[in-house]
Write a protein that binds this DNA or RNA. Structure first.
Lengths: 185, 185, 185, 185
DNA sequence: TATGAATGAGAATTCATTCAT
DNA sequence: CATGAATGAATTCTCATTCAT
């Protein structure tokens, strides 16, 4: 599995061959099939393990929380932990989050450039808000990426739901979350 | 290109064959190669067109904005538009955002379940915050998806940067954006 | 046909496409088929024309010859003419004589090196004969190539004959031609 | 490799498919690629082995030769051996020497006829020389093929040289070799 | 348990040829 | 006469999977 993680991380699912994996593991090709029924199986196992990791971190926030201090502490701890896991397992993270990015360098560049460009556009929007005196002095690029992520994840979640809520309502809620934040006043 | 969009949307990049595409388009296989050099080329063209669409919407926010009212109006307009585009081109969106989801049904389910589970976990966290009297009464699931998206997009952006900023700082900024929102008080 | 000669000469029969030829000729692809039934046809026509050229030169030797002087004169004239044609139509010559040489650079090098090496080996043999006082002071490399050509052409001719003569006899005759030459003494 | 030799010998390089070869060898198509990276590779290996064979024979002439008798003996031995190899490996020989002859029956006939016609023309020239009392009573057809081979090989060698010698000189040398032979008097 | 040679279905790509305009 | 878009058969090469040793 270690070999598979390295190889998939390097080449992506499709470009990686069972040969690559067994060679990296220093075993013969047949040995692979003693432990996995199919090529997909290792891939699933790897993805699953990463996702479980992320889920566990999320679940840790609410455990044994009683006071506001504890709660905010846990939130920060979980967020830090999440970033740590992404960095430590960054190959697995990229593999999980966007198999196609390893499809080939050109597509990878296409997407990277897209996100950078879009983030810059949004950062400009945010800077304008700050200049207009409407927004706090946040870091525009981080905030831009955050907004992009918010929108794409919420939009994709809606695409999968059988009876999605009224888009207009969702947009209002999202904007309120982005503008007003969560904290009660 | 319409045929390719349908076929890629249905099967994903790898599982879709040029044969599938030309059959869907009602032309012979060779005809494909009169218009595209490679299979990848159509795929790129499709992805590019979708991404450009999204970028254009983002750029529209700041155009001809003078007053706060105009600014917030534009923000909402853009957000609405973005959701509309995601829904209208949902096949293209899914194709662009997660090629691997179309790899096969099992992986698709794996990822969908992951996001749903994770969102529920985070929604519970948010509900706890509300119960503790710390948070406003937001929609917990929408907010949960928003948080997931924020974190994953920011984390992935950092993974690609050659000299990423101190993670601790980024986390603080993210939490402040999530808790306090953008609006100046 | 001029365009075809250039293109075939450049790329060889198989690597040259009808598209290449028509593009070189500045006409549309369909036009090709107004003048030739198949791709092979132009190729044949080109090869045929070159071969006819060579045959005509050979036939010119014996025409209107009466005296020994005339005969030797014609021989030299024909030989000169032959070399001139090979040089002038060298692309066609190479095309005719070894289509496979244009197969790809690697095979071309393989064969060129072979002939050069073999000629050097034979040239050494000839030099030894000169040193032993057995041979006249001929140009060893030219003579070497001549010997190679003699043997390969005679051998190939025999391979095609249905009732080939006794190889031993052929070899004897060849050696006598090489050693003693043609001229009566 | 045996199967490949047979198939290439039968159909020529281009007309032979990897399928043909593996079917002839009684193995599956994929097996081919366990032993060769590309189709060209087997072809090269076959050609190379034949050429090495020929080169070795040429090199054997000068080995351990001290007396004129030994020298002439070796020459005859090598020539005999050469013819033997051509006959034994005639498929390989034809493959090596003229891939295009196997292009298709029509071209094959075209070239065969050309050589036969040309040889007849040259044989007539030689007969005339004999009748004129200028030449010895050699076998006109063998001598004709020898002359054709001499000229074509020398001409092609010159075409490949970057600074070819003066054609006039080469022609003189060739004629002298053909008329006077090698042996010193 | 481990091996690795063999398999063969499958996919991308090419290009000679056709034919409606 | 000329065009060039469309065709689709054909070919090379890949690689997940099997199985006898």
């Amino acid at each position: 599995m270690t070999a598979a993680r390295d190889v998939f991380g390097q080449k992506g699912y499709h470009a990686a061959t069972v040969d690559d994996i067994t060679r990296a593991a220093g075993v013969a090709k047949g040995t692979f099939y003693l432990y996995f029924d199919e090529k997909r199986e290792v891939y699933y196992d790897l993805v699953r393990s990463f996702l479980q990791h992320v889920k566990d971190i999320g679940a840790s926030v609410a455990r044994e929380v009683h006071t506001p201090q504890e709660f905010f502490g846990r939130c920060e701890q979980a967020a830090q932990e999440l970033v740590r896991v992404f960095i430590e397992h960054h190959k697995l993270a990229r593999l999980t989050y966007r198999e196609s990015m390893s499809l080939d360098p050109e597509l990878e560049r296409l997407l990277r450039d897209f996100y950078r460009d879009l983030a810059r556009v949004e950062a400009d929007n945010i800077r304008m808000g700050i200049e207009l005196g409407l927004f706090r002095a946040v870091d525009p690029m981080i905030c831009a990426y955050a907004h992009i992520g918010m929108v794409e994840r919420v939009a994709l979640a809606l695409l999968h739901e059988e009876s999605p809520p009224e888009p207009r309502t969702v947009v209002r809620e999202l904007l309120s979350i982005a503008f007003e934040g969560l904290r009660k006043r």
